[in-house]
């Protein structure tokens, strides 16, 4: 297999850590050699948080080079836009949860928050597949990452990683007390006809 690069991002506090843990465990279970690296450091909420995951026997360093992500997973629209423009490779896939965390520059009127149409246009220009996830009535906004994982389970974009691998990894990572609710969100998105739309 050629190397496969996954870049995950969102806003501090959105649960990128859990997302990246589930992803790396699923990829390991699928038999891939993995290398990854997460941002750690600034504790505050509100900054950009990212996680890199690279699969393949010929991967030597853990970070995804700009313009070389085969798959971008974003938990917020502006961060999806940023990664789409800077990190995704032409022809790759971007899966994102469509929620809005406005940064201060937007709130002060010094910058624009991107519209969905802008994302679509930027994706088209780069021949990217753009998958928008949005679920009404999540039991907890912290399950947006689980919804995105559910959608991934139905997409089969990562070579060799099936929905079952993702579900198994989710079961391993999520605390027992929250597992049932998370699995429900995961499964609702995993069905091709589920509540979320795709673009």
């Amino acid at each position: 297999m050629a190397n496969f690069n996954i870049y995950m991002c969102g806003v501090g506090g959105q649960g990128i850590g859990v997302l990246s843990e589930v992803m790396i465990q699923a990829c390991l279970a699928a038999g891939h050699p993995v290398k990854g690296v997460d941002t750690h450091g600034l504790a505050q909420r509100g900054g950009i948080v990212s996680s890199h995951l690279r699969l393949g026997a010929n991967v030597h360093t853990p970070r995804v080079t700009a313009g070389e992500a085969d798959l971008v997973i974003a938990l917020e629209r502006l961060e999806a836009f940023r990664a789409l423009v800077n990190v995704a490779r032409t022809g790759g896939t971007v899966v994102f949860y469509d929620t809005e965390f406005q940064p201060i520059h937007v709130r002060m009127g010094k910058a624009e928050y991107p519209s969905l149409a802008e994302l679509e246009q930027a994706a088209k220009k780069r021949q990217l597949r753009l998958e928008r996830v949005s679920a009404d009535a999540l039991p907890d906004p912290r399950m947006q990452n689980t919804a995105v994982l559910g959608r991934l389970a139905g997409l089969n974009v990562i070579p060799g990683v099936t929905g079952a691998h993702l579900e198994q990894a989710l079961t391993q990572v999520i605390k027992p007390a929250q597992l049932e609710a998370n699995l429900a969100v995961f499964n609702a998105q995993a069905q091709p006809t589920a509540a979320g739309e795709s673009n």
Binding site: V11, R45, G47, G67, R82, P103, I104, H105, E112, E118
Partner: peptide, 18 residues
């Protein structure tokens, strides 16, 4: 060199928490 993106992407700087 990778061409710079034409899109304007709003910056997001770390902030003090709510």
């Amino acid at each position: 060199a990778r061409p710079a993106a034409e899109e304007d992407v709003a910056p997001r700087l770390p902030q003090m928490c709510p």
